[in-house]
Design a protein around this nucleic acid. Structure first.
Length: 509
RNA sequence: GCUCCGAUCGUCUAGUCGGCCUAGGACGUGAGAUUUUCAUUCUCAAAAUCGCGGGUUCGAAUCCCGCUCGGAGUACCA
């Protein structure tokens, strides 16, 4: 018996990694790290028809971005490779043969067309066809055909599949770390195809063989696999591997934010949030899907948010770094019911994590937007602006819209703001403001004293009225950070020239 | 249809030996405070008769049964 903790994340490269898949990878990772075990990336590409170029690379890039690392895998190798099932193809055949030899599996020659016809026929009678212990006796397989006929069919190259043979009327129990003991009767299970006519194994066979060969100790996967878990348990038994069978943990599903059903590819852009970690363009259809990374989500925020969708640390803690999560993670605290994705909370998490990003780092994230608007500014200046704006935004992408006036003078003034703020006599006030700015040292206390105390307050003017008009003149609208800090940031000359322009443009009302 | 899984504020959830739960926290929402504006921040509030009905018990969100509703699976997909 091997006591080492070994878990795997085993996606199939059929498209971009869904956010639910990301969570599965995350839970596996947290568990492995906490236990000092190994985290393995295995690519399950046994379905050649659904293979999508670039998907594997996408998966690796996405998990790397999020800080989910592997100890062994398709991209880094390891002692149990290869880690891509298509490269392990020859291996599965012998295991299928073993099952065949031991009477746990049989050859089936029914064509897809025959199977379809059979299903349709059952449908008309409002029944569902299942290839199982009751129907297999009426199908074309090595159980019903004479041995020499079976041999002749195989030798002549007739396509066939290998099906698992469930025992009749046996209770099969699956002990799940999250759901407890789940029992099913073999009579209700269908004889799943283990080996396809194209020479490739199906998920079920490849998965069990690889988990065994790779010495996987815990299988942490989505709940959609729970119904086939009994088959997997039976497979371990049929192979004689029950003593080293991994423990199962079936995770609750991620649900749509509204309506019914599990979160799907389509929901994302329809409801205004990404369901994929990274942007993705489907190579066949050209269809584009947006990702968390490109939308400006911070990886730490995505990890934290995802960790809490279906798990909790057992207390009120919510802000947790990857290291915190590794320390606190526990399968006991994974919930059983599906979790509905909440965009607002995701936004909040990002806001929280954005506050921790340094001004210079945020400036770096802001740079593409500045370039897009043809703005060049010193890194220090951009960082200062970012520091001022940080707490007011949740995503770097909101930066330009909320702080463009730090880089370009307003070319127009919000009419509603003019109506509300620019009262008669305001041009005189603004001219006075210019005079004050020119006469005092250009620093916070001096400006505050001369402008607020000596001019506005001493003369009994309305602070809000004048300061907001000043803001309108300098910024173009009525929102933004502290006015004096703002003037200090854009500089004396720029401030004065903007006020002057506002006086000329808006004029007296 | 059949099989399996699930069910606490709008959402994520706490609740793991039944009593500390007149059910706690967070997001969101509302109100107030701070601010020259907006945002941030802070304070307060509303919000779950614990899906429904039975039972066990001195006592049940917590245990048992039934029902209902929701979800998943039911492919030579994973």
């Amino acid at each position: 018996m091997n006591n080492e903790i070994r878990v795997r994340f085993a996606p199939s490269p059929t498209g971009p990694l869904h956010i639910g898949g990301v969570r599965t990878a995350l839970y596996n990772y947290l568990f492995a790290r906490q236990k000092g075990g190994k985290m393995i990336l295995r690519i399950e590409d046994t379905d050649q028809t659904r293979f999508v170029p670039g998907a594997e690379q996408y998966i690796i890039e996405a998990l790397t971005w999020l800080g989910i690392e592997f100890d062994e895998g398709v991209h880094i190798g390891g002692p149990y490779g290869p880690y891509r099932q298509s490269e392990r193809k020859p291996l599965y055949r012998e295991y299928a043969d073993q099952l065949l030899r031991d009477g746990h599996a049989y050859y089936a020659f029914d064509t897809p067309e025959e199977l379809d016809a059979r299903r349709k026929e059952c449908e008309t009678r409002k029944e569902v066809f299942q290839y199982d212990c009751t129907t297999r006796t009426s199908m074309r397989n090595s159980l019903t055909l004479p041995a020499d006929e079976v041999k002749r069919l195989i030798d002549s190259g007739t396509p066939y599949v290998v099906r698992f043979m469930f025992p009749d009327d046996t209770e099969i129990t699956v002990d799940d770390l999250i759901r407890g003991r789940v029992t099913m009767n073999s009579r209700l299970l269908d004889d799943k195809v283990l080996f396809k006519s194209d020479g490739m194994p199906t998920y079920h066979l490849a998965n069990i063989v690889d988990d065994h060969l790779m010495k996987i100790s815990h299988v942490i996967r989505g709940e959609e696999w729970l119904p086939s878990a009994p088959l997997h348990v039976m497979l371990y038994k049929a192979f004689g591997w029950q003593d080293t069978m991994p423990q199962f943990a079936h995770l609750p599903l991620l649900l749509k934010p509204e309506g019914n059903g599990k979160l799907s590819k389509r929901d994302g852009d329809r409801l205004g949030f990404p369901v994929f970690p990274l942007d993705w363009t489907d190579p066949k259809t050209g269809e584009q899907s947006s990702g968390y990374r490109e939308r400006g989500y911070l990886p730490e925020a995505v990890v934290n948010m995802l960790a809490l969708l279906g798990w909790n640390p057992g207390d009120d803690r919510e802000m947790m770094s990857m290291n915190d999560l590794i320390q606190l993670f526990s399968i006991d605290h994974i919930s059983k019911s599906g979790a509905r994705f909440n965009v607002e909370k995701a936004r909040w998490f990002n806001h929280e994590y954005l506050q921790k990003v340094s001004d210079t780092e945020l400036a770096r994230l802001f740079e593409p937007q500045l370039q897009a608007h043809g703005v060049g500014a010193s890194p220090d200046y951009v960082a200062t602006v970012c520091g001022l704006m940080k707490e007011r935004i949740s995503f770097p992408s909101e930066l330009w819209d909320t702080c463009h006036y730090f880089f370009v003078a307003p070319d127009s003034y919000d009419p509603a703001a003019i109506k509300k703020r620019w009262k008669p006599g305001m041009t005189t006030h603004m001219q006075k403001v210019i005079d004050i700015l020119q006469s005092v040292p250009f620093e916070h206390d001096a400006i505050h004293h001369a402008l607020i105390d000596e001019y506005i307050t001493a003369n009994g003017y309305n602070i809000g009225q004048i300061m907001n008009s000043l803001r309108l003149a300098v910024v173009g609208t009525t929102v933004g950070p502290d006015m004096i800090t703002l003037m200090l940031t854009i500089g004396k000359e720029e401030t004065i020239s903007r006020v002057r322009r506002a006086i000329d443009t808006i004029g007296e009302v």
